[in-house]
């Protein structure tokens, strides 16, 4: 059983206790929503779970192994943060080239963009795009590698209703394949999630 279990997670940022005894168990094929007011540590939780923050107490287990000891864990998740990781003065296709190097996988960018009706943007500079378009392109990083865990930090911000439903479908089909998705959001999802973590 591939499950992500979080047990009594505690994390300090400076003198503040940001995460206080978080426990959750996410089975394969489930989507969890992380809820909380601004500054309550939603992003911190995702950063802890993607082992960018290593200074925490409690345990995080995936496939019954502690992620601290699993040195291949970084190949099993994809964390899409609020910053887009886009170089402002480069075109979309060149940005994809940079991402391909990092993810170590070649894709057909034209085909990928066509699938999501973004193919008109391919030669445009990032600085000329709107925030919503940037977010769409940033979310296409999910397509660059196939991993069982998705961490999405505020993915629905800036998206219009059409793109929201596309993203919702993507998350659902990821769940069907047996993948786990963890989403932070301020607004309600369009469908019912399998569980919530409230901070």
């Amino acid at each position: 059983m591939k499950k992500l279990s979080i047990n009594e997670l505690k994390c300090f940022r400076g003198e503040n206790l940001v995460l206080n005894r978080i426990s959750a168990e996410i089975k394969e094929g489930e989507t969890f929503v992380i809820k909380g007011s601004n500054g309550s540590g939603k992003t911190t939780l995702l950063r802890v779970l993607s082992s960018l923050i290593k200074n925490y107490s409690g345990t995080i287990m995936y496939e019954d192994r502690d992620i601290k000891e699993d040195y291949k864990f970084y190949q099993k998740f994809n964390f899409i943060g609020q910053k887009n990781a886009l170089k402002e003065n480069l075109s979309v296709s060149k940005n994809f080239k940079l991402w391909e190097i990092i993810y170590g996988k070649k894709t057909d960018v034209n085909l990928l963009l066509q699938k999501y009706n973004l193919n008109t943007l391919i030669d445009k500079d990032i600085s000329s795009l709107s925030d919503g378009q940037k977010k769409c392109i940033s979310l296409l990083k999910l397509k660059l590698c196939s991993v069982p865990i998705w961490y999405l930090d505020e993915p629905f911000v800036f998206l219009d209703s059409e793109n929201r439903s596309i993203l919702t479908d993507e998350i659902k089909s990821h769940n069907h394949r047996g993948g786990i998705a963890l989403i932070t959001t301020n607004t309600e999802l369009d469908y019912k999630s399998d569980g919530e973590i409230t901070l």
């Binding site: 040195y71 970084y74 998740f77 964390f79 609020q82 910053k83 887009n84 990781a85 886009l86």
Partner: peptide
């Protein structure tokens, strides 16, 4: 700094051990 500012550093840090 430029990688840090646009978020690429996060991507690099999570993809390379």
């Amino acid at each position: 700094y430029s990688d840090y500012e646009d978020g690429s550093l996060d991507l690099i840090l999570q993809r390379y051990e």
